[in-house]
């Protein structure tokens, strides 16, 4: 296989284990089900919110224990996560489709598969459009054959965003992002025959990911305003923090 730069190996080492994550989230859902059964069947949307909330907790845990991030003060850590959580959450969902999923369906972190046509059929226009654009992004990343190593780098690239306002350790964050970019470029050069153009395509995918994550936040905010979002969890806290 291609030579993997040392930094990329370190990033891979920080990645959570997919099976462990699955087990943890399923256990959490079963725990919550006890509460649901006494009332009525949970709505699909609130079930999805619980899953998203648990994924978000695992993203925070990944960041907290990751190289470079551990060195930051909690105040900077919070600013970076407040800024990047929705992109990281969406990347988590999308990378799962590329690494483990199959065409035409959405693979959840719990291992369940949902037909994309079913989602689009039952969803309102906002969620249907989000799903379709997400699917197009999955197709692009699939064509680019983005692998686990690259997804691992991209997560750090998103997290260490030097454009976030009022960072105390702006220098370290900027330097980490530059290191990530170099490692990603170095790695893509060893794997791809199209060299730079593939790297540029990857960066274009990231800007699409960013606009999709904004749409996802808008959608969740709308759901929150109409009283459909479960409260008192990390997902709703992150939504509020960005509005404040």
């Amino acid at each position: 296989g291609p030579r993997i730069p040392q930094l990329v190996l370190e990033f891979l080492h920080c990645d959570p284990d997919e099976l462990q994550l699955r087990r943890k989230i399923i256990a959490r859902l079963q725990q919550e089900q006890t509460g649901w059964e006494t009332h009525r069947d949970p709505e699909t949307f609130s079930l999805m919110c619980t899953i998203a909330d648990q994924m978000l907790c695992s993203i925070v845990e990944w960041a907290r224990t990751s190289i470079f991030f551990r060195q930051l003060k909690v105040s900077d850590q919070m600013k970076l996560l407040h800024h990047g959580w929705s992109e990281l959450l969406l990347l988590d969902i999308i990378s799962r489709q590329i690494l483990y999923g199959k065409e035409g369906s959405l693979l959840l972190v719990t291992g369940q598969e949902v037909e994309l046509s079913d989602i689009v059929f039952h969803a309102g226009p906002a969620l249907a459009s989000l799903t379709q654009r997400g699917q197009k992004l999955v197709e692009k990343l699939h064509i680019l054959k983005v692998d686990r190593q690259e997804f691992s780098c991209i997560k750090f690239f998103i997290l260490f965003n030097p454009d976030v306002k009022e960072l105390e350790d702006h220098g370290l964050i900027k330097s980490v992002q530059e290191q990530v970019e170099r490692a990603l470029l170095e790695y893509t050069l060893t794997t791809s025959s199209q060299y730079l153009s593939r790297f540029v395509d990857l960066l274009l995918c990231l800007s699409e990911l960013r606009s999709l994550s904004t749409l996802m936040e808008d959608y969740l905010n709308f759901k929150h305003l109409s009283g459909e979002m479960p409260c008192n969890n990390l997902l709703s806290e992150m939504l509020h923090a960005k509005q404040a």
């Binding site: 907790c57 925070v60 845990e61 907290r64 909690v74 850590q77 919070m78 996560l81 407040h82 969890n233 990390l234 806290e237 992150m238 509020h240 923090a241 404040a244």
Partner: peptide
């Protein structure tokens, strides 16, 4: 505003040795 971010702060601040 501090109270608003209580959960994130808790998750980041928690002590693994406990």
């Amino acid at each position: 505003k501090k109270k608003d971010n209580a959960l994130l702060r808790y998750l980041l601040d928690k002590d693994d040795t406990v």
